[in-house]
Design a protein around this nucleic acid. Structure first.
Lengths: 208, 208, 208, 208
DNA sequence: AATGAATGAGGGTTCATTCAT
DNA sequence: CATGAATGAACCCTCATTCAT
C-alpha cells in the first residue's frame, strides 16, 4: 500500500505524476471528501509537505488529477479515430477502447464520478469536463456524418446521435461503477454497439 | 443564552422534510463536501442542534435525503407506467415526465450526482441507488417486451434496450447538469425519443 | 431499567427522592461526567424538563444527591453509637454496620467516590464531605476516649486513632469499589477490627 | 492564519511530558470533567491541535497522565524498599517518602482522586490503579513478613496489615485533599507510624 | 405540575497549510 | 528539495436549559 523509498533523483514531472497517481488511488478508494493530504502522501510514500511544494495546494492537486485523467481519456479515444478504417470501423474501435479493461477500470471510473459529484459547485472541474465532452461529441458526430454520407441515413440528426452516445457512455460507466452486478463491461459494450446498430441498421451487425 | 420562540406547530414528519429540503438546497448549491450542518440549519431557519434531534447525525440526514429523492423519483416514473395506454404511449409518458421541468430540475440533478460521487465508497448510498435502478430497468424492460410482442421486433434484446435507456437517462441528466450550454432538457428529450424510435422504428415517430 | 408510569399524586418530596435515586443509579453506572439529565429522567421514567422544575439545575440536583447519601450514611453510623452497650461493643456495631451489605453497596460507594473526585474543585461538595467527616471522627474519638478511660491505654492519642480509622474506612471503601477482587466486605471488616484490636489489645479479640 | 514560530527543539517524549504536566495542573485545578483540551494546551503554551498529534485523543492523554503518576508513585515507594536497612527501617522510609512534600503534593493527590472518581466506569483507569495497588500491597506484606519472622508477632496476618495500610494511605491522602484543615501531612504521617507501631509494638516507637 | 421540542454555547476532533530544520 | 511537527479555523456533536403547550 505504501510505495518504496522515494528516489532522490526523480524529476519534477515524475514527482507530480507520482502524487497524482496516489491521489487517484485514494479518491477511488475513499471518495473525494475523505481523501486527505496525509493519506495521499502516505500512499505515495512521501512526506506531508511535498504536495504544497509541487502543487501549492490540495485543490490544485485535485484539478491536476482531473486534468490528468481527462488528458489520458482524450488520448485514448483519439487513438480510435486516428486508426485507418471506415467510420464504422472507427466507431467500433472506439467502443472497444472505451470499454476495454485498460480504460474502463473501476478505479478510474470512481475518480471520474467523484469529480462529477463536485463539478456543479466547482467551475474549474466543470470546465475541464465540458471541454473534453465537447471535443468528444464533435469527433463522434464527424464519424456519424461520414457514415450518413456513405449510407442511406439521410434524415439522421447526427448531433443527437453523437450527444446521445456521449451521454450513454457516461451512464454506462456510472452503472459499471455503482451496480457492477447488473452492469459488466461486456454488457456495456453490447449496449454501445446496439446503440449505433439501431441508428445505422446493417452497419454494425457483424462487429465483435 | 435565551432561546427565541420556536415554532411548535409542526409535526415531526414536517420538520424532517423541512430539513431534508434544506439539505437538498445546500448540497445542490455547494456540493456534498461543502455542506455543513450550520448551513443546512440556517437554510431551514432552525437551530444548529435540530438535526441531531431529528436525524441523530449528519450522515443519517444525508441518507434520508438520498432516500427522499429516490422515493420521489420512483413515484414519478411509476406514474407513467400506471397511466392507461399502449406501451409506446407509456414510454412516451415516461420520457415526458423524466425530462419535465418538475422532475428534471437542476437542483435535484445536482443532488443525485453529488451522491453518485460518494456512492462508491459508501455502501448505503450505493444500495439505495442500486435498488432504485433495478426496479426502473425492470419496468422499462417490461414495456419493451410488450412492444416487441405486439410489433415486428422479434430479435430485440429488451434487457439491453432497457439497461441502455437507464444509462442514457443518467448520462443525459449529468450533461444537463454539467454542460447546460450543450444539453437542454428539450435536447435530452429528443435524444431519449430518438433512442426508442431507433429501436422500435415507426412507433415513436409521431410523438411530441 | 425504566420506572413505571409516574403517579400524578406523588408529593414534591417524593418526586425529589425519585430523581435523587435515579441520579445515584446513573452516577454509579456511568460516572459523574457521563451522567446527563436525559439519562437521569429516563431512569426515573419522567420527562426531561422535570429536574429544572424540582431542582432548578443539574448542579443543585447533584448537590442534593450528595447531601442525601451523606445524611443516610450519618444516620447509619449514629445508630451504632446510640445502641446500648460498652464503647467496644459500639465500635464493633459501627464496623458491622459500615461494612454491611446495606451500607456498603457498590452502587453507593461509586457515588461517594464520584463526588470525592470532583470535590477538590467544588467547594460545595467539599463542605458537605468535611462536615460529615468531622462529626464522624468526633464520635469515634469519644468512643476511644471511653475505652481508654476504662482500660489500660493511658498514652493513646485518640484523635490519631479516630482520624486514622476514618481514613481507613474511606480507603477500604475505595478498594472494595476499585479492586473488588482483592478487597471484599468481609476482608475490609477484618481489617477494621484488626485496626482497633491492635490499638486496644485484648478488647476486640472475641468479636464477630 | 499565520502560525507563530513553534518551538522545534523539543523531542517527542518531552512534548508528551509537557502535555501530561499541563493536564495534571488542569485536572487538579478544575477536576476531570471541567478539563478541556483548550485549557490543557493553553496551560502548556501550545496549540489546540497538538494533543491529537501526540496522543490521538483526549481520552488517551488522560490515560497516559494516569499512567505517568502511577509510574512516578511506584518508583517512589520502590526507592524506600530498595534502601539498605531492616524491614522496620524500610517501612519508616516508606512513610517518610509517602508523606513527603514531594510525593504528597495536593496537586498530585487531586489527580489521583479525580481518576478514582471515574475509575468505576472506566476499566482502563481501574486496571492501572489495580496493578499499582497489588504490587504495593505485596511489597509491604513482604516487609511485614520479615518483621514478623525476626520478632515476636507469630499470629499476625500480614496480608491484612498490608492491605489495611494501603487503604489507610489512600484514605489519608483523600483527607489531606478534602479536609486540609483537619488533616496535615504531619498528622497523616503520625497516623501511619501509629498504624505500624500498634501492630508491631516496640518496633516503631523511636522513629522520626 | 408536567412535557419534550427546540436552542446554542461549548466540547473534541480533523486536516490543509506553514516553516524551521 | 524534502521533511514532519506545529498550528488553528472549522467541523460535527452533546447536552443543560428554556418555554409553549
Amino acid at each position: 500500500m505504501v510505495a518504496t523509498a522515494p528516489a532522490r533523483t526523480v524529476s519534477k514531472a515524475q514527482r507530480r505524476e507520482q502524487l497524482i497517481r496516489a491521489t487517484m488511488k485514494c479518491v477511488s478508494r475513499n471518495g473525494l471528501s475523505a481523501t486527505t493530504m496525509a493519506e495521499i502522501t502516505k500512499e505515495a510514500g512521501l512526506s506531508l509537505g511535498i504536495v504544497n511544494l509541487h502543487f501549492q495546494s490540495k485543490e490544485k492537486l485535485l484539478v491536476e488529477t482531473l486534468r490528468y485523467i481527462a488528458d489520458e481519456y482524450q488520448s485514448e479515444w483519439q487513438k480510435a479515430v486516428r486508426i485507418e478504417g471506415s467510420p464504422t470501423e472507427q466507431l467500433a474501435n472506439l467502443i472497444d477502447i472505451e470499454f476495454s479493461a485498460r480504460v474502463c477500470q473501476r478505479e478510474k471510473l470512481a475518480v471520474w464520478v467523484a469529480f462529477w459529484g463536485e463539478a456543479k459547485s466547482r467551475p474549474t472541474y466543470r470546465r475541464i469536463c465540458s471541454a473534453l465532452d465537447r471535443e468528444y461529441v464533435l469527433a463522434i458526430q464527424t464519424l456519424c456524418d461520414e457514415i450518413c454520407r456513405t449510407g442511406r441515413h439521410p434524415h439522421t440528426d447526427t448531433e443527437i446521435v453523437a450527444s446521445g452516445y456521449s451521454a450513454l457512455t457516461d451512464g454506462l460507466w456510472l452503472d459499471i461503477l455503482l451496480t457492477p452486478r447488473d452492469m459488466s463491461r461486456a454488457k456495456a459494450k453490447r449496449i454501445a454497439i446496439d446503440y449505433f446498430s439501431s441508428h445505422f441498421p446493417g452497419r454494425f451487425t457483424a462487429l465483435s
